[in-house]
Simulated scan of single mutants.
Amino acid sequence: MPILKLGRRAVTGLPSVTKATIFYDSELTGFGVKVTPTGAQSWIVEYRPGEGGRRVAKRRMVIGTPATLAPEKARDAAEKLLASVKLGADPATERGAARKAETVDELLDAFTKRHLVEPKLKAGTIRLNSGYIKNHIRPALGRKKATAVTHSDVSRCRTK
């Protein structure tokens, strides 16, 4: 578990490794850079969620890579994440939940199956709603996560 001051020079001068190794920062506990045998590097934050302590398993989260994120910016991001952990948040779980969230397409499929396939609606209403979904909603919002849809997204969809 090597510990050093992670800066530009330190990161560019890291040795090649035979197995994945994490070099931790001497200033910020839980912040480090992970280096793989292929030479890939990524900024990481390691923490224990909830009350912490040795009974809780560690969580590790990637912030970015040294190629795209300067050490100072990565350290700032890590500080913010670790502060939110101290306040009771679990950023890795939140990120995972956001990735697993349903897309608008999936919700529209469920809606169509429930309300337009076995309907109690008139044929014209079904045609009209299907047209709205096919021509307006799916092209504008279909690939977006349902939790990420904002009021302005819906407004833009209405004006087209």
Rank of each mutant, 00 (worst) to 15 (best):
R54L: 13
V56I: 08
K58T: 15
K58G: 09
M61L: 11
V62M: 14
G64L: 10
T65S: 05
P66Y: 02
P66M: 14
A67T: 05
A67S: 10
T68G: 02
L69R: 07
K73G: 08
A74W: 15
R75I: 10
A77Y: 11
A77C: 12
E79D: 03
E79K: 14
K80I: 06
S84V: 01
L87S: 08
A89H: 05
D90V: 07
P91C: 11
A92D: 02
A92I: 04
T93V: 07
G96C: 09
A98I: 02
R99A: 12
R99T: 06
K100W: 14
V104L: 01
D105F: 00
E106G: 01
E106A: 01
L107T: 04
L108K: 11
L108P: 12
L108C: 14
K113R: 10
R114F: 11
V117W: 13
P119N: 14
L121E: 03
L121C: 05
L121Q: 07
G124R: 04
I126D: 08
I126G: 04
R127D: 10
L128E: 13
L128Q: 00
K134I: 03
I137W: 12
P139S: 13
A140D: 03
G142H: 07
R143D: 11
K144E: 07
K145L: 13
K145G: 04
A146S: 09
T147L: 13
A148N: 03
V149C: 08
V149L: 01
V149F: 06
